[in-house]
Design a protein around this nucleic acid. Structure first.
Lengths: 336, 336
DNA sequence: TTGTATGCGTTATCAC
DNA sequence: GTGATAACGCATACAA
C-alpha cells in the first residue's frame, strides 16, 4: 500500500493540497474546523509527512551534521550528546559521521553532509588533518560551520575550545600550593595546539611562583600509560616530586612508577592528570584531574550554530576546565 | 550565488539534465567522453548533488536512524560507533536520536525518522518504554527495524542481544572453580529481561555444580555503587564469600564493603562484575568482569539491517560475553 | 548514446 | 479561508 500524501488527504476531504499543507503546518489562515478535519483524516490514513519533499521545496534541511574522529570516545560521545540535546529541542535532526582519525574520511564526511543540505556542520578534526581546503567547500555553501576542540584558527568561523592554558595553569598552581617544589610535566605532542597551550599554562604557573622551568622535566611524548610510566621514572631520578600530566592515562603510569619506587602518594609524589576520565575518582588513591566539559562543549557548539546569523564570521568560545582535587595531590597543606 | 544543478551543467555543455544525471551516476550508457566532460564541468562549477531531491525521486533515503537512551554512555556510544562504521561503508548515513530514557522522546524519535524516510531504524528502548504501539508505525512502513540490547520479544523483527545467560553462567562458574562456596549475586531489577537472564545463568551455574541457591543472597536492587556496598554488607553477615554482580559499579561497592570488613580480595572474598567498564582493569586489585561487546553489537545490528530482505521477519542474534579474569576473583586455584 | 516527458510530495505565490 | 499553479532538483520510462 502506497503511503498517504497530502494530496490523498485533500481528495478525501474535497480540499486542495495547499489547504491540507497549511492545516498540517498550523497556519493561522486555516479555519479551525478544517484544521481538525485534516488532522483527524491524516491520523486515520496513517499519514507521515515527507521531510525530503518539504526540505527540497524549502532549500535547506532541518539537519545539522556532526563530524568527530571517533564516536565511542568518552569525550566525543559527550559532546555529541550535549549537542544533540540542544539541537533536538530546536527542531533539528543530527547526522553523525566519524572519521576514524583519517583525513580522507573527513573530506568525504564534509561532502556527504553538503549533499544532504545540512544547515550546519559541527566538526572536530582528525589527527591526520592538516590541510583545510575541504572546509572551504563548506564555507562557500551557506552552511554554518562550527569547529570544536581540535580547531584550525585560520578558518573564519565559530570555534569552541577548552581553556587548556588556564586549566594547566590551575593544575600546576595547585601542586605548587601543596608544597611541591620540583614539578615536571607529561606534556603531550607539540603538534597539537591544545598540548602546546597546556604546556604554556604549566610554565606560566611556575614562573609566576618564582620557580624555574627545567626543560629536562618536560616530556613531549604521546601521553599514554606506558610513556607516563617511563618518563616519570626518568623524572624521579632527577629529583622531581610532582607532575602535571596532559592526560589521565599517562598520569596513571606516573603513579605506578612512583609506587614502584616506594614513594607515597601524595606525601612523596604528587600528580594531577587531565580529562577527568571516570577511573580517576575510583582508584586508590584517587587521582586529581583537570576536568574537561565535553557535554557543555557540545551544548555550546550547538548554541553557537543556532545563534550564528553570519554577523560574526570569526569568533571563539572557551569552555573552562575544572580542577577536581583528589588524594593524589592533596597534602592537606601541612607542608606549605 | 545559486547552487549549480544538473540543469546548469547540462546547459553549459549543450546536453540534457538526463544525460548529466546519468553521467554523474556512472551509468554505463553514457559515452566515456561525455562522462569526463560532465565531471570536469561539475567540479568546475562547484556542483554538489542534492540528496533530498534524489531521495525524493527514489522514494527512500540512504539513511539509517539509530535511537538510544543516551549517546554518552560507553555502551551505547560503542554500539553507535560500530554501526556507523558498517553503515558508512555500505553508503548509508546515520541519523542519531537520544531519548534520555523517556518514552515520549522515543515516540517522537520514531516519528522523526519516519518523516525522514529512513531505510532502517536501529533501536534500544528507554527505561520508561513498556508500550510498543509506536513501533508498529515503523513496522507498517517499509523501514527495516532492528532492536538491540533492550528489546521487546513480541515484535516481529530482528533482535540483537547480549548473551546474558551464558555470561552470568560463566562468571559464576569461574567463582565456583576458584573455590568460593557461598556465592551471592547483585542481580539488578527484575523488570528488565537482561537482568532476569543473568540471574538465571547464575542460578544454573550453582545448580550444575551441585550447590544450593540461597534466595537470601540474591539482591534484586538497582545496581549502583551504593546498593552494592549495602547489600554486600548484608551478604557478608550471612557468610557470603563471593558475589557475581550484574553491574560493575555495584561490584565496586561490594569490594569496598569487603575491604572495610578487613577481608582480603580475592583470598577472603571474590567478585566478578558485568560490563567491563574501563575502570575495572585500572583498579587495585583489578576487577574481573564479564565484558559486553557493544562495538560488535553495533556492527551486528547494522549487518542485520543490511541483510534484512524481509524473508526472516523474526530472528535473534546473540553477542557473546567474555570473562575478563582479573585479580578480584583469582585465587590461583590453590584452594580448589 | 542521448533526448523528451513526467512525477516524486511539498510549499510559495498568486488569485479568488 | 481556500484553490490553482508552478517550482524545488533529480531520475526514470520511453522514444529516437
Amino acid at each position: 500500500m502506497r503511503k498517504a500524501t497530502i494530496t490523498d488527504i485533500a481528495k478525501e476531504l474535497n480540499l486542495t493540497p495547499s489547504t491540507v499543507s497549511r492545516a498540517l503546518n498550523g497556519s493561522s489562515l486555516v479555519k479551525q474546523e478544517t484544521k481538525e478535519a485534516v488532522e483527524a483524516k491524516a491520523k486515520d490514513m496513517g499519514y507521515v509527512r515527507n521531510v525530503m519533499a518539504s526540505n527540497l521545496r524549502k532549500g535547506v534541511a532541518q539537519t545539522v551534521g556532526i563530524i568527530v574522529p571517533r564516536i565511542n570516545r568518552q569525550f566525543f560521545s559527550n559532546v555529541i550528546s550535549g549537542a544533540e540535546s540542544v539541537l533536538n529541542d530546536a527542531g533539528y535532526n543530527v547526522l553523525i559521521c566519524q572519521t576514524e582519525e583519517r583525513y580522507e574520511k573527513e573530506v568525504y564526511a564534509i561532502d556527504t553532509l553538503l549533499w544532504n543540505q545540512v544547515a550546519g556542520i559541527l566538526i572536530s578534526h582528525s589527527i591526520e588533518t592538516s590541510d583545510t581546503s575541504h572546509l572551504s567547500k563548506a564555507l562557500n555553501s551557506n552552511v554554518r560551520l562550527v569547529q570544536f576542540d581540535r580547531v584550525f584558527y585560520n578558518i573564519p568561523d565559530v570555534k569552541v575550545v577548552n581553556d587548556n592554558y588556564h586549566g594547566a595553569y590551575t593544575a600546576t598552581k595547585h601542586l605548587i600550593d601543596n608544597g611541591y617544589t620540583r614539578i615536571g610535566t607529561l606534556a603531550g605532542y607539540m603538534t597539537s595546539a591544545q598540548y602546546r597551550e597546556r604546556l604554556e599554562g604549566y610554565k606560566r604557573a611556575l614562573l609566576d611562583a618564582g620557580m624555574e622551568v627545567d626543560e629536562r622535566l618536560i616530556f613531549k611524548d604521546t601521553i599514554i600509560r606506558e610513556t607516563g610510566y617511563a618518563r616519570a621514572k626518568e623524572a624521579l631520578d632527577l629529583g622531581c616530586d610532582a607532575m602535571y600530566s596532559a592526560g589521565d592515562f599517562s598520569a596513571l603510569g606516573a603513579m605506578q612508577a612512583a609506587k614502584e619506587k616506594g614513594l607515597k602518594i601524595p606525601d612523596d609524589f604528587g600528580i594531577v592528570g587531565t580529562a577527568n576520565e571516570n577511573f580517576t575518582e575510583l582508584m586508590t588513591p584517587s587521582m586529581s584531574s583537570i576536568s574537561l566539559k565535553p557535554y557543555q562543549m557540545g551544548k555550546a557548539a550547538a548554541q553557537a550554530f543556532l545563534n550564528d546569523d553570519g554577523s560574526n564570521p570569526d569568533s571563539m568560545i572557551t569552555i573552562e576546565m575544572e580542577l577536581m582535587k583528589r588524594e593524589s595531590s592533596n597534602r592537606h597543606k601541612e607542608s606549605k
